[in-house]
Simulated assay, not measured.
Amino acid sequence: MRWEELGQQPCSLARTLAVLGDRWTLMILRDCFLGIRRFEQFERRLGITRHVLADRLKKLVEHGVLSRVPYQQRPLREEYRLTESGLDLHPAIMALVSWGDRHMADERGAPVQHRHKACGQLIRPVTVCSECGEPVTARDIEVQVGSGWKADELSPLSIPAAQG
């Protein structure tokens, strides 16, 4: 499968990766969640070329992850803000951060900590069942074909499940 074809795959992960699946896009999203909004701030913090940054921001706007909001009229200047769709990426970003904290941190530990505003405690993300609230892991999940699957396509269930 070619990279350009990911967006047409009958797989939510493939379609998501078609929009978000490169390092610069994920770093831009990280910075958005840290409160960065302006082009020059992204450029300075990331050390990314203007061309690549403009391309990634444009794609995120086109897919409704970010919106451009004016902050100055003369001359017109805009900043980038997370949309509801963008804010919905927070659990995914936090899961990646948590994985990095567990598997990529050095002896000093996590470089950034996250504190829950309501209770004041440091947190780590946990995936829970939306119905019963119990924590779930990969071993607790069973996959089945959903309504978005086309009958003429190879079923994802015909692929052997990963053993773990």
Rank of each mutant, 00 (worst) to 15 (best):
K58A: 12
E84F: 05
L66P: 03
Y71L: 10
I36M: 11
D31H: 11
C11K: 01
Q41W: 10
D22G: 07
R30N: 02
S67R: 06
E43F: 03
P91G: 05
S67L: 06
R45A: 09
T16V: 05
R44T: 14
H90T: 09
T83W: 00
T25G: 09
D22Q: 03
L89V: 08
L89S: 03
L13M: 03
R30M: 05
T49S: 11
R15I: 02
S85M: 01
Y80F: 14
C32F: 05
T25D: 06
R74D: 15
D88V: 00
S12I: 05
S12Q: 04
S85Y: 03
G21W: 03
L57A: 08
E40V: 08
A14S: 05
Y71Q: 10
D55I: 11
R38Y: 15
E79D: 14
T83I: 01
G86W: 04
E79I: 10
P70V: 12
R77Q: 15
R44I: 10
L26K: 02
L87A: 03
L13I: 09
H63A: 04
L46D: 01
Y71N: 11
P75L: 07
G64T: 08
R50V: 15
L29R: 02
R37M: 13
E84N: 08
C32P: 03
E84G: 05
A92P: 05
R38H: 15
L46T: 07
L66K: 01
C11L: 00
G21E: 00
R37I: 13
I28N: 02
L46N: 07
R15Y: 05
E62P: 10
K58P: 01
W24H: 12
E78R: 09
L66R: 00
L17F: 08
I28F: 07
G64N: 07
R81C: 09
R68G: 13
H63T: 07
A14Y: 03
L20K: 02
A92L: 08
S12D: 09
L89C: 06
I28R: 00
R38M: 15
Y71F: 14
R77T: 15
Q73W: 15
M27Q: 10
R77S: 14
Y71R: 09
R30D: 00
V19Q: 05
R68Y: 11
